[in-house]
């Protein structure tokens, strides 16, 4: 954990809703190394976006610590704080809303370069903007420099926001549903660009998505973490998580996803939930929050005791059943 680029240590974030406190993220610990890809997946309201925002420093934690290169981010001041803010950049979901409509592509990308003195002269700025556009596969760059966002397609816009995030040479990128608003036919090429950048620049990426198949593709060499109602319930190397899921929630999710192949999808074995009702964060079930729906509910312990993440076959899983199996096996 000491060598991690970003480390979350028992991070909790609460919000006040109708004079009640809800935990959007509850006791989350996670370390991400330099050059690593981690995907966070989960359904809406599971806390994945809140986690991303806290890591990017745009939302303070309620308790716990987030460390950037070993230093607690809320204690950072002056230059150290600036280094953190530049070091962690965000790519947002909606490329139609995240670009200033009255700025050309050149202006959008040149602004941070000038502001942070990455380039000293106008010639150098132009050169760097061109380089960045080529880096995100917007070629030839000269065709795009003077265009406004409304003249670009969704995919091109998202590439411009990636180029903008790269202007300040970040070490860590938080990409929140970064391809979900882009046309299906061009999502893969956008992800490939991100992967290429990750390799070329040694970037770490936290990729937040609701689409497990996409997460598996993007984090092929990395890890996937599954969140449910504010808690991380399982985290494992991607292929392992998809092929041998251990948490009952992960298993249910994987069995529920339809596949773009009629033979496979119609023969897929389904795991039925005990209940279709998603509990509200305002009235979380006791013990394991998944117990009212869990198909593998084992009784009182699930209702009473909240399971903690434990090592299980190379993954970390928060489930009493898995814990029991591990203890029995040992």
């Amino acid at each position: 954990m000491a060598n991690a680029l970003i480390a979350l240590d028992h991070v909790t974030r609460t919000f006040q809703v109708k004079r009640q406190t809800i935990k959007a993220v509850d006791d989350l610990s996670l370390a991400i190394n330099a050059g690593e890809i981690v995907c966070l997946v989960g359904e809406s309201g599971c806390g994945k976006t809140t986690t991303g925002k806290m890591i990017a420093g745009v939302l303070p934690v309620s308790s716990g610590e987030i460390l950037f290169r070993g230093e607690e981010i809320s204690n950072l001041r002056g230059d150290a704080h600036k280094k953190f803010r530049l070091g962690v950049q965000m790519i947002h979901q909606d490329p139609y809303a995240s670009l200033n409509p009255v700025r050309t592509v050149f202006d959008t990308i040149a602004a941070p370069l000038r502001h942070h003195h990455y380039t000293q002269t106008e010639t150098a700025t132009r050169k760097r903007v061109r380089e960045l556009l080529e880096l995100v596969d917007l070629t030839p760059p000269d065709d795009l420099l003077d265009k406004y966002p409304h003249q670009l397609s969704g995919g091109q816009r998202q590439r411009v926001s990636i180029a903008r995030a790269l202007t300040v040479n970040p070490a860590f990128i938080v990409a929140d549903e970064a391809v979900s608003m882009v046309d299906v036919s061009i999502r893969i090429s956008l992800l490939n660009t991100l992967s290429k950048l990750k390799t070329a620049m040694g970037l770490s990426v936290l990729f937040i998505t609701h689409d497990l198949a996409l997460a598996k593709y993007f984090a092929w060499e990395g890890r996937i973490g599954v969140m449910y109602l504010g808690r991380l319930v399982e985290i494992a190397p991607s292929r392992q998580l998809v092929e041998h899921p251990q948490h009952p929630y992960t298993q249910v999710l994987l069995s529920a996803i339809p596949e773009a192949n009629p033979d496979v999808t119609r023969k897929k074995s389904r795991i039925e939930l005990r209940s279709m009702d998603v509990p509200s964060l305002m009235r979380l079930p006791s013990g394991c929050a998944f117990h009212p729906r869990c198909p593998q509910f084992i009784g009182e312990i699930c209702e009473r005791v909240r399971p903690e993440l434990t090592q299980a076959n190379g993954a970390r899983v928060a489930c009493h059943l898995v814990e029991e199996k591990v203890t029995r096996g040992a």
Binding site: V184, S185, I186, R187, I188, L212, A213, L214, K216, Y217, V242, L254, I257, E259, A260, N261, V264
Partner: peptide, 11 residues
């Protein structure tokens, strides 16, 4: 192209 552009869990 569309079919090749969609990642699947099992594929």
């Amino acid at each position: 192209g569309l079919i090749l552009a969609v990642p699947t869990i099992t594929g």
